[in-house]
């Protein structure tokens, strides 16, 4: 469905955002994970036909996104949520969605209205749909962004940091919505929040400094951290070894429980723990970055 070969992108000032990335993405929910500045947004923008690569090829649904015609063909079947979505403050939520629907080519007033009403229900903004967008909170604006991406029933959905700025309840709802959308279509979810990927994606890639560090299933990434995750319970004031990466900290009444990843935990209180996706991600980054 999506095929990327030796894709590179260099910005002005010799800033290399992507370095010979090769990737195949099938139907379903695909997670693109990596720290800020890893090149995720650049890759997403190239796949969406918004940015030209410096080198390499990218085919989306059989269309070459480096070619003007192919780019337009991709945009016709694309739902895109940019990382920083701007909205027209002078339009209402409903007016904005109607505007985007027409520009996307959703024909027929009735079809448009039906789709917009359904999406407003799904994102929970039906009651405030006639209010101007400038009165919406950050989370509400993000939900409008998700709704516009889903308009026109796109075959390819690219969402860049969709849960940024959402409260926990909204995040869960949005994750579930995106997971429901993935079926016969491709959903690419770019995020630096590993939990978003662990809950929804069946396939993922980890990007770091413009290169793919890992490509596979979440389970395979978790497996990589097997034997490298520990739980250490320490009195307050004491810290685990300097050589370990602390994944999480839980403060109890008289103890502090650390979850750590590393080559070896020498502390006598260290107990092996079953890794999760976040551990797998941190272990991978630790292995490759240090």
């Amino acid at each position: 469905m999506i095929s990327v070969t030796d894709l590179s992108k260099t910005y002005k000032g010799d800033v290399r955002a992507l370095r010979s990335v090769t990737l195949e993405i099938d139907n379903g929910m695909f997670g693109l994970v990596g720290p800020n500045g890893a090149g995720k947004t650049t890759l997403m923008r190239i796949l969406a036909g918004l940015l030209r690569p410096t080198e390499g090829e990218a085919h989306v649904l059989g269309h070459d996104v480096t070619d003007p015609r192919g780019k337009m063909a991709v945009k016709s079947v694309l739902g895109y949520l940019p990382q920083e979505l701007g909205l027209y403050p002078d339009l209402s939520g409903r007016e904005f969605l109607d505007y985007v629907a027409i520009l996307k080519g959703v024909a027929g007033k009735r079809t448009r209205r039906r789709q917009i009403e359904e999406l407003l229900d799904v994102i929970g903004l039906a009651d405030v749909a006639d209010r101007r967008l400038k009165t919406y909170s950050g989370g509400m604006k993000r939900r409008v962004g998700v709704a516009q991406a889903l308009l026109g029933d796109p075959q390819l959905l690219i969402v860049d940091e969709p849960t940024a700025g959402l409260d926990p309840e909204e995040r869960v709802r949005l994750r579930n919505l995106l997971a429901d959308m993935a079926g016969q279509r491709t959903v690419i979810l770019s995020t630096h929040i590993v939990e978003d990927v662990s809950q929804t994606c069946t396939d993922l890639a980890v990007l770091h400094e413009g290169q793919i560090l890992f490509r596979g299933t979440p389970r395979a990434l978790i497996e990589q951290a097997h034997g490298h995750v520990w739980s250490i319970s320490l009195p307050p004031g004491e810290r685990p070894d300097d050589g370990l990466t602390v994944v999480s900290t839980l403060r109890l009444d008289d103890r502090v429980e650390y979850r750590v990843v590393g080559d070896e935990a020498h502390h006598p209180a260290a107990e092996p723990a079953a890794p999760n996706l976040e551990d797998g991600y941190l272990w991978l980054m630790r292995k490759n970055v240090s």
């Binding site: 337009m72 945009k75 016709s76 895109y80 979505l85 520009l103 996307k104």
Partner: peptide, 8 residues
Amino acid sequence: ELLHSLPL
């Protein structure tokens, strides 16, 4: 950014 992602 959004407008450029549309078939426009």
